[in-house]
Amino acid sequence: MKLQVKEDRCSGCNVCRVVCTLENFSTVQPSQALLKIKGLFPDPGKYEIAYCNQCGVCAGECPEEAIKEVNSEYDIDYDLCTQCLICVDSCPFDVMVVLESGYPAKCTGCGKCVELCPRDAVLADQG
């Protein structure tokens, strides 16, 4: 699932980030979430959501060609990954993380953030 966001609907609750790490890493650890929320307070009083739009920059930068497009989503082939982490540094939205194992991780398009966002601020991109 490709994501889109409506930032003006976001209330900063971080439910998306908690369920993201549970679904993908079986842990309650929002610091490892594959999307980020930044509150702009006190002025102007709004939230910015950084998320993976499956732009593929990480795939283009990977020297091992370990990140491949499958059905409009980019997935990491961990059999090919050498933990060089160039992909993490290349992410234009800073939403890739490094796991304790040393491997990188990126949004898998699981859609859990879309399913649980109470505000419909994170949505499936229908376009």
Binding site: D8, C10, S11, C13, N14, F41, G45, K46, P118
Partner: peptide, 19 residues
Amino acid sequence: LITDKGCFGCPTPCGKYGY
């Protein structure tokens, strides 16, 4: 009102942030 402002984990944010 400018935006609803929720606490961690909140589906029903009572926080109303305004100007």
